[in-house]
Design a protein around this nucleic acid. Structure first.
Lengths: 205, 205
DNA sequence: TACTGTGAACCTATTCACAGCA
DNA sequence: TGCTGTGAATAGGTTCACAGTA
């Protein structure tokens, strides 16, 4: 992929999510500005990075633009499942695996891990649950690329180390811990506590 | 607060989280670089924005630095609870309210809302659960500043509108929807799907 | 007319490089 | 020596302004 500003990449990912749920046939940069708060010139600039030139005087065709962004960012399509696992099957991890948000998505949970045997035995899912000790073998065998980390904070770094060692490329971090990972692993922090703190810092500034 | 780069503010919030769980007495910018991947010069620059000058040749005192960052960003301390609510008591919302991650935090969930009466009646929590129709009265009365949005995607914008109208200052958005909110409301997107897509975009770049 | 696409200007953010200090 | 703190240089990101187009 051609090098684009990291900030543009994040906005384009967000724009793809927005377009995916857009009911209209066409959309303009001004409408996108209203929906996202991002300046319309910046939106057009971001779109221009993708090489998409389909815009005409009354806006972009939603599906075409979405396709262009997905292709440019190499975002997975719903048909091309990427395999994920959940590490940590407490209340939150169990809810994530059961709540169905991945159902229509390009991501498929194919394994769950917990260090407590009773969790993997008590819970049921339409994919296998393993004791955490099996991570190093199951993750490569099941071709798992991404992990959702939902363990207790005090186990977070330990599990992140094992996920990294097992070869995952990315971790969605629900824990409050800041994870130290090799450069080959990317982390997205989605801790509700961190998010609330970020909100406080933004509100107070 | 003096104006600082938005990127610095986010990093300082992350640094505060890291320091809060740091067991050592002192820490250097190089150690922080190792733990976070952020360049050490940038870390020192960020710290200098807070006005903290406590660093000496063998690093920063962790507690002092943490205090300085919290004061500068006006982050809440565990003792000064900020009141929050959860909107959407499905599997994910219910797990968030029960999993205890807010227990030791400066955030206290004081209300839950769901548009389905059976959810508010079936679930139990140590704070009251209300039908969504009560949001506009309960939120101001209970002095709720922040909301955790965990409804189904198709209700997300509707609920965000009502939260905004009820006066919340910030929304932690667990849904896959991009929310359109007034400028007075800040949104932090923590959708696992968006996070996974961001990871894909970063991995492929 | 109302939009897109984009060079150029401007502003923000990051890195460098080094003085100052324990 | 090994760190912090910070001005200066560079790189990155955003906004402006306008030509081009349906």
């Amino acid at each position: 992929m051609e090098k684009i500003p990291g900030a543009s990449r994040r906005r384009l990912t967000l724009l793809a999510a927005l377009l995916a749920s857009c009911k209209e046939e066409k959309i303009t940069s001004i409408q996108i500005q209203r929906m996202t708060g991002i300046d319309r010139a910046l939106i057009r600039k971001d779109i221009s990075f993708t090489g998409f030139k389909g815009g005409v005087s009354n806006g972009y065709k939603v599906q075409d633009l979405l396709g262009a962004i997905r292709a440019f960012l190499r975002l997975p399509l719903p048909g091309q499942k990427r395999f994920c696992c959940i590490a940590g099957l407490g209340k939150l991890g169990a809810a994530l695996m059961q709540c169905g948000i991945f159902d229509e998505s390009p991501f498929k949970i194919v394994a769950g891990f917990d260090s407590r045997v009773n969790r993997t035995e008590v819970l049921s899912a339409d994919f296998p649950l393993y004791p955490a000790a099996k991570m190093e073998t199951v993750i490569p065998e099941s071709k798992i690329d991404f992990a959702i980390l939902a363990v207790e904070d005090d186990q977070a770094q330990l599990m992140a180390d094992r996920l990294a060692k097992s070869g995952v490329k990315g971790i969605v971090n629900f824990t409050g811990q800041v994870l130290e990972v090799p450069a080959s692993v990317v982390v997205e922090n989605v801790s509700p506590l961190l998010a609330l703190n970020n909100i406080c810092a933004r509100v107070n500034s």
